[in-house]
Amino acid sequence: MQEFIQLTVAGLAIGSIYALVALGFVLIYTTVDVVNFAQGDFAMIGAYFMVTCVLSWGLPWWLAFVISVVLAAIAGVVFQLLIYQPVKNRPRSFVPILIATVGASIFIEQAYLIMYGAVPYQVPGMFSVQTVSLGGITLYSQYLAIIVITAALVVLLSWFLEKTKTGLQMQATAQDPDTAKLMGIHTAWIAALVFAISAGTGGLAGILVAPVFNVSISMGSSIALKAFAAAVVGGFSSVRGSIIGGLIIGLVETYGATYISGSYRDAFAFIVLIVFLVFRPYGLFGEKTSDKV
């Protein structure tokens, strides 16, 4: 039982990270209809900002945290201007954007390798205490922090999207960009904002996971594909969906590696995904949209 709880907490924590990055995928996809394959790199960028803030500048954890998230969000806007804007109006833009984001991802990772070197960095977690004992069960404090912060962020983001004017404008743009434009919504600004939020949550995920994963150039790509799968399992359309998708993938992966096969750990996420897509092509919460004739 104790082991099962440990596994579940680990699964939920890893799942939360997938969920945060998945959230980034979904926000960008629903608002500007782009699948960004460099999403995992936002997590890496956020984590490296944290490295600079904490290890080079010696800033306190919370301040470093805030600065890193903001810088990651700014990086998202720059990315948006350089990669997304020039290609967005091409026919079947999904395809060139995919490769452009992949190329960007190669570039970003190598640039960081040159700037920071290959040795992984260790950054401190939120708590100085490593483990917490609850009724005889030893849990890793950072895992708990990841779960709690993710939950808080989801509440915040849902409130933002559903209750604030800007959030509603984003949703309107998502549903019908042309009409949104006519209604006086500045869609270019919305696109920049979406990339900022999405890169910000990605960066946040990277910062949260940094004490667990260590900071290296490979940290982003290992998260991105699973997060992508999580987004699809959740339906690629809602905050709620991507969170639940992320948690499902995290748990399935952890249980699968434990009870079925460790060697095939990376396959479980995709087996779940394929089963989902074949039997429920629109994910858990996705709406079935048939072609208009």
Binding site: E3, L7, I14, T258, G262, S263, R265
Partner: peptide
Amino acid sequence: DQGYTTGTKDYTSYLTNIKS
């Protein structure tokens, strides 16, 4: 006897099995 893929970050699953 367990194998993992290079670059695995979370070893909870493997260690749980080793423990049990």
